[in-house]
Design a binder for these strands. Structure first.
Length: 186
DNA sequence: TCATTGATGGTCT
DNA sequence: GACCATCAATGAG
């Protein structure tokens, strides 16, 4: 059985791009209803705080975005288009309002349906707004180091769905594992 | 194969 | 009332 070594708070309390890249290959674990779901993270996006016009935190602190302004290692889960949820992990020191969006997983255990794309990922992992604000150092909700040391190539691309954000739309803040078939389509 | 659109609801102005 | 860090279905070519 895989060794599930939980990533510590200090992992998230670092530069957001570094955290984003190092999350690739790690495993998201969510235990709910007696079912342990595990997925390997293969695609992420970095959101760089209030200065980043593509980030929700660029509008300032609101009831919805409060969790982004809190300490690292917590989940920011929000409803999008009335149908789907998207999950982020807060990074850097409290108040920096940075986060990493999880965009795609490769199913490892008990992941049903598709998990390529942030909305589908949450659905497949049983994640919804009830997880907003939850600590990712919980026993039933955490990220574990990849069990084997793997050599992978990381591709950098512009983020998806943020065309409105001017110069920030073109920045290479989307990262995925080269050649992985579970990376989202567009 | 590509472009367009509908579903659906919370959040902010 | 407008806007969404989405996805699937539709229809034209």
């Amino acid at each position: 059985m895989d060794l599930m070594r939980k990533l510590p708070r200090s992992f998230y309390d670092r530069d957001t791009v570094t955290v984003a890249r190092e999350l690739l290959g790690a495993r998201l674990v969510h235990v709910a209803g007696g079912v342990e779901r595990v997925g390997r993270i293969v695609e992420v996006e970095a959101y760089l705080g209030e200065q980043d016009l593509a980030a929700h935190s660029s509008k300032g602190r609101t009831p919805r975005t409060a969790i982004l302004f809190g300490p690292p290692g917590f989940a920011y889960v929000y409803l999008i288009y009335g149908i789907y949820c998207c999950m982020n992990i807060v990074t850097e020191r409290e108040g920096s309002a940075c986060a990493v969006l999880l965009r795609a997983l490769e199913p490892v255990r008990n992941v049903e349906g598709r998990s390529s794309g942030p909305g589908l990922l949450c659905r497949a992992m049983g994640i919804d707004r009830r997880q907003n604000g939850r600590d990712l150092l919980s026993d039933d909700f955490f990220v574990a180091e990849s069990s084997e040391r793997e050599t992978m190539q990381v591709v950098s691309r512009p983020r998806i769905g943020v065309d409105y954000s001017g110069i920030w739309a073109g920045k290479l803040l989307r990262f995925y594992i080269a050649g992985n078939s579970f990376v989202s389509k567009p």
